[in-house]
């Protein structure tokens, strides 16, 4: 880890001023990703601005049935919150499916949005990585790609976004509120993360001087939602494929569907194609399969992650089927 100076921000204003004036500063929230990356010499800030004590820890009901989640709400608090558990089960499940209880007690919502890829070559200083060192190439191409993306990837980068929470947030039309000394703006979660294209090092829409202050969830279209995570061990592993889904069915017809995928793309992947196929379709396994096919039609793969295309299809179908069965059981 490189030497840095540490500043504890007493309030949001100071935090924003510090980040605006220090050329190479980073906000520190829960530290679960940043400290790891600093120790690996991948993140090398000169100044670390500790924002963990800022009063951004509320979970508040909004008029109209939505919820506003402070950026520094810790993962465990989010997962356990009654509003979240009852209205957005998919969010609670996504959080509980990620990392370990210890890490969830540390990690924050804002930090989760900015979590960086687990690409083995991104983590390895001796390997080429366009994300870590723009223009150096991509050692992942032709390498181990089991945890890499099959949707939205480019010739410059095939890394996948590792977050579970973001997948649920993407499915639910969340919006991110960000603040800087220049003011406040809102970014839809689905536009918060960038696809790599030829600039994989530009990962989000967040400007270097901006701070994520909260995430807002609109009123749920249905409380029937679920997160299914498929991984290499039963717990404490990143997703190979994950599916966040919400499904509303009336008279055996899909009247609302929200679907997003994790582990398969450089960003939390809102499955708009699948949603389009589902809406108004009969709530049957055939429809679910067509929806999955449609979403994965544009997928491209490497030797090591080819299986993800089929796995994603199957996991989509299984998750929707489970939601349907839940309904009949209820």
């Amino acid at each position: 880890m490189r030497t840095f100076s540490y500043v504890r921000a007493p309030d949001v204003e100071t935090a924003l001023r510090t980040i605006a004036t220090e050329p190479n500063a980073k906000f520190l929230g829960g530290g679960t990703n940043l400290v790891d990356l600093m120790r690996e010499n991948i993140e090398r800030p000169d100044v670390v601005v500790d924002i963990s004590r800022l009063p951004l820890t509320g979970i508040d009901e909004l008029p109209g049935g939505g919820v506003r989640i402070g950026a520094l709400v810790r993962n465990s608090s989010l997962a356990a919150h009654p509003l979240v558990r009852t209205r957005y089960p998919v969010v609670s499940q996504a959080v509980l499916g990620g990392a370990s209880a210890q890490l969830r007690n540390m990690a924050t919502v804002g930090g989760n949005l900015l979590q960086r890829t687990r690409c083995l070559y991104f983590y390895d200083e001796a390997s080429a990585c366009n994300k870590r060192e723009p223009g150096s190439g991509c050692s992942a191409l032709g390498g181990f790609t089991r945890n890499h993306g099959v949707l939205g990837v480019s010739d410059h980068c095939i890394a996948a976004h590792p977050s579970d929470l973001c997948v649920a947030l993407a499915a639910l039309d969340a919006e991110v509120e960000v603040e800087s000394t220049r003011g406040t703006r809102r970014i839809p979660l689905t536009e918060f993360h960038h696809l790599p294209g030829s600039t994989p090092h530009v990962e989000t829409a967040l400007a270097p001087d901006e701070l994520v202050t909260s995430v807002e969830l609109p009123a749920p279209v249905t409380t029937r939602s679920r997160y299914r995570k498929v991984r290499d061990r039963a717990s404490y592993a990143f997703a190979l494929v994950s599916v966040a889904a919400a499904l509303e069915v009336r008279d055996d017809t899909v009247t609302a569907a929200r679907l997003a995928l994790g582990g398969v793309a450089p960003k939390p992947w809102r499955a708009t194609e699948a949603e389009r196929v589902l809406l108004g379709a009969p709530a049957t396994e055939e429809s679910f399969r067509s929806a999955a096919e449609a979403e994965l039609a544009s997928a491209t793969s490497q030797d090591g992650n080819d299986f993800k295309i089929e796995l994603a299809r199957r996991t989509i179908v299984a998750t929707l089927r489970d939601l349907l069965t839940d309904r009949s059981a209820a």
Binding site: F144, S235, F238
Partner: peptide, 24 residues
Amino acid sequence: LIDPRNGRIMNPSLAEYHVPVHAD
């Protein structure tokens, strides 16, 4: 995971080398 192109171990970590956890 030893990269066959250069002999470098690519998952030298307990996060990416999956030993069984309690739940397994």
